[in-house]
Design a protein around this nucleic acid. Structure first.
Lengths: 344, 344
DNA sequence: ATGAAAGCGCTAACAA
DNA sequence: TTGTTAGCGCTTTCAT
């Protein structure tokens, strides 16, 4: 700040009263006379007085800030979560400090320590892909920092968490394909080291089993990191060299689904009539591509809302009462679009 | 914080020295003996001491935080800007506090005041669409808060700003279409109340003029807020009722370009051979749609970098020296994809 | 109804 | 080389 800042002392001086009176008047303390109150409020408004919340926070040992650790803002999914977080926080008088780790462990460590140093009242964390050692998180947890994980959690730490029911989403998607008449449904698998990939695979298998369709391991194919190109390539293989003629694809994510669609079109097959396609995540692109892509929506906004509510509850709970961690599993919703609705 | 926090006093007590010695030891002050230093550092590490930056900030009248006011995180464009901002800030030892206004004036006012109250060292601001009264910004500016505008600025306040050269981008796009052989290029116009819409229109006109192509006002059509549906609708009209057969479209933004593409396909015309299309903003969708969409890239990341550098320069400048505001105009780059490359 | 004073955790001028 | 003290701006207990 270039200029000296305006303080309560300044207001007090001008009015010939003490700064404690100013403080009380500003928070409408019953002891203060109406006359004094009005004078103070008037002058404060005139001078556009903004109290220094640093001093307040230091004094009260409470900042009314919460920190959010997020891997990547540019992902629709996380951006929507943030929006949910800010909504709840804002309405409860909290500010949100966001840090983007770019999936880097080092960055995550630094960010979390910085948030701790600035004494946020609690943290919402989605861990970076790189992170395997969680001591930076257990450290602050042990010091009493309220933490809620969202989307990507860490089982080592016994806190509240909010996650998507990936199994259920995959089940819904696969069941929908079956209901559309698909008998030979391929699955484009995500990276095996992520829990979500496994859960989605399990959901896919469970749906097939429920409807008495045999699981064909040849139709379950890895597509690396799940990029469009990789997905297109593996779909090419399925269509050209596979011994089974498929009529449906459930992809681990929307980018992969898109790659599959490109491959299908290239082979002059029709979507959805020859092959129906369903993705996962319901990114913006899903409604934009041609044909619009059916996809499992993870209700990111709701995840943000739920996680923040849990965190604020914890922050505002009485110090004495023991908080028992809750795990909220949000059911995803299948959004059906043209890519999977076969004409009957 | 549930538990009492660890302070320098605690460390001092355990070591039987004073807290000022601890403070000095921790910042490697030359006066302190190596012996003491090592003891302090060792204990601090053991106890995982994290200094309270609130106290530091209050004392130093410097928070090392910068605030960012952004309309919508979910837009690729802004998300990328943020990434650039965080990059520069992080490397210079600053933290970033982001606020999302959701294009609301009220929210913007509250956010800016909250940032001021928390004594951020400076602010990066992109104003909300709703904002017409700027007194909340002039207020803090007059109190000495360093401010840099990005993308959407406010001419009333004489600060540094970083913006895209929309005129140039539109010019490049239109010139490219002309070079591809287009003679009748339509322009899908953005909302007239935004400066950017006007600049892009002007760039379009200037390119036509340069190449001796007459400006046909019938080919300059509004498409409301620029959504896909609206763009598709107006394109339908041009194709069905227009008296000119067009061979190129320059759209004010990518969503509108997409709508135009849908309309063109519906009319069984080929992109780019019958009609070439160029959009603006180079959103992710541009490379995903079919055919991939040529688009003017605004180099959002660079905007974030440039704005933050300007702000930090201002923050770190000597109080006495007068800062003269700079305006950085970043040239956008046309990214040419299949939607506009006619076979010769 | 108001004021004086202590203290939140840290730094820095001044003393020793 | 280290300690003492004052003070950043605010709240709050205890006096008055």
């Amino acid at each position: 700040m270039r200029k000296a800042q305006l303080t309560m002392q300044d207001i007090a001086d001008r009015l010939g009263i003490s700064k404690s009176t100013v403080s009380r008047a500003l928070k409408d303390h019953p002891d203060i006379s109406d006359e004094t109150k009005q004078a103070v409020v008037k002058l404060a408004k005139e001078l556009d007085f903004q109290p220094n919340t640093l001093a307040l926070s230091l004094r009260q040992k409470k900042t009314n800030n919460i920190g959010v650790i997020i891997p990547e803002i540019v992902h629709d999914f996380f951006a929507k979560i943030i929006t949910g977080v800010q909504e709840v926080a804002y309405n409860s008088g909290y500010n949100v400090i966001m840090c983007q780790t770019n999936e880097s462990y080092e960055r995550e460590k630094t960010d979390i320590n910085a948030l701790f140093s600035s004494r946020v009242d609690g943290m919402l964390i989605s861990v970076a892909k790189e992170t395997e050692d969680f001591s930076h998180i257990t450290n602050i947890y042990n010091k009493g920092m309220p933490i809620v994980f969202f989307d990507r959690s860490c089982d080592l730490i016994h806190t509240s968490k909010v996650v998507t029911d990936d199994f259920d989403g995959a089940f819904q998607a696969t069941e929908h394909l079956i209901n559309q008449g698909c008998k030979h449904i391929a699955h484009l698998l995500g990276p095996k080291n992520l829990d979500i990939s496994i859960s989605r695979l399990e959901g896919y298998k469970a749906a097939l089993t429920k409807y008495g369709i045999e699981i064909n391991e040849n139709l379950i194919v890895k597509c690396g990191e799940g990029t469009q190109e990789e997905a297109a390539r593996v779909t090419d293989l399925i269509l050209e060299e596979g011994d089974t003629k498929i009529d449906g694809i459930f992809a681990n994510n929307d980018m992969a689904a898109l790659g599959a669609m490109q491959s299908i079109k290239k082979h002059n097959l029709k979507i959805p009539d020859d092959i129906a396609v369903v993705g996962f995540s319901n990114w913006q692109l899903a409604e934009i591509v041609d044909p619009p892509l059916s996809s499992v929506s993870q209700s990111a906004y709701e995840i943000g809302i739920a996680a923040t509510k849990l965190l604020l509850k914890e922050i505002e709970s009485n110090e004495n009462e023991e908080i028992k961690p809750e795990t909220k599993v949000l059911k995803p919703q299948l959004v059906i679009r043209a890519s999977s609705q076969k004409k009957k």
